[in-house]
Design a protein around this nucleic acid. Structure first.
Lengths: 206, 206
DNA sequence: GATATTTTTGCGGGGCACGCATCTTTGCGT
DNA sequence: ACGCAAAGATGCGTGCCCCGCAAAAATATC
């Protein structure tokens, strides 16, 4: 059962995370104070640090949540699906755009994308983002171990798979952001990346 | 030519980095103040921030340097060596222990390892470490692109290779630290990891 | 409705990162 | 050898961040 307490906590957390991202994309990382984020979310500044232990962590929180969902998605895939096909699908599922982005008016949208790009370039945030990916990777490794019947404690295999899958997604996203004109569809990039990794990344003929 | 100026800068940087690691492994991350690190390196506290923009960055600096050396090492490998063999060797080269560690007396050494483990577990450092790896990965990708005649701007291939290689090293290191009793030789773990990745990480028979 | 738990909030402290002005060191041309 | 220009080191001051602690408010339990 989902009590009022838990729901409110989740809402506050989401509000703080979203406010942190929104304000940062709008004004730039160090023109946003914790105080501003707290105000936008309707809580006291002190409360901010009850939810996140740093400004960076708040901003990275959505990325963390989404990354964790990949592991959960893998567990939902049919057990008889081949591993790499299941991984690819699990990853793809995370890239259907949510309503709060879709509902954004178009001219604003361009500014938004630019703001996000600037945000991602901020060194102070990259570390936290990568840490989020690492946390999710552990979950993914556990799911892979379960699915393939390997042992996390003795085999490197599940961790290698999880790391390679994370890398595929990361590279595809980077490629998408870099060459956004014209923007190659992210779905194709992800599929491509997974295919190459699953083929062992052979050196191309020269 | 390597002037006095550059040499002194490099020395100061190294001294700060080493002091940061040493003190942190000894006392724990938040029992070390920037002031202490500066003092140990023989410079003023203000100077610390001329070299590193955070305590975490200073601690991760050696890791960054070592990671960057992998990319440099790849460039030194013979051009006719197959890609994955060259990558494996380049990575292996970075794991011959330096004299300042080798020279450490054995009882102290145990404490040292424990200290380092605690240090690596510190959340505040993990992000910075990962960021260092990411920076090195970009270098590695460039080296791979060069060696394979692919194009960084249009092909995901070199980045995927770099990411997969980084992941192989990271997983091997993690495995090494986790199962350190008995400690499997790191060289074998790395070689194993690279072999699996280059084979496309096929699902094992159940 | 009264009591017990959880969460929020205000306050205060210790530290960190950095801009700016100043002083010192190094490099170089004559 | 000397002095000037460039680069680095230092001290000071500022704004912000993160967190411990204890009181107050909100929610759950009976």
């Amino acid at each position: 059962m989902t009590g009022l307490r838990e729901r409110k906590k989740a809402e506050t957390r989401a509000a703080l995370g979203w406010a942190a991202i929104h304000l940062t994309a709008e004004r730039g990382y160090d023109n946003v104070r914790v105080e501003d984020i707290a105000e936008a979310a309707g809580v006291s500044p002190r409360t901010f640090n009850n939810y996140f232990s740093s400004k960076a962590e708040a901003i990275a929180s959505r990325h963390l949540d989404r990354s964790l969902r990949t592991a959960a998605a893998l567990r939902e895939r049919p057990v008889d699906e081949p591993l790499w096909a299941a991984l690819t699908q699990a990853a793809l599922e995370q890239f259907t755009r949510g309503p709060e982005v879709e509902a954004m008016p178009s001219p604003t949208h361009a500014q938004w994308v630019a703001g996000v790009r600037t945000m991602l370039a901020e060194p102070a945030l990259q570390g936290e983002r990568l840490r989020a990916v690492a946390v999710a990777e552990a979950e993914l490794a556990a799911a892979v171990a379960e699915r393939t019947g390997t042992d996390l404690a003795t085999d490197m295999y599940p961790r290698l798979v999880a790391a390679a899958a994370s890398a595929a997604v990361a590279v595809a996203m980077q490629h998408y952001l870099d060459s956004a004109d014209p923007p190659a569809p992210i779905e194709r990039l992800i599929t491509d990346a997974f295919t190459q990794v699953a083929a062992g990344l052979p050196a191309p003929p020269r």
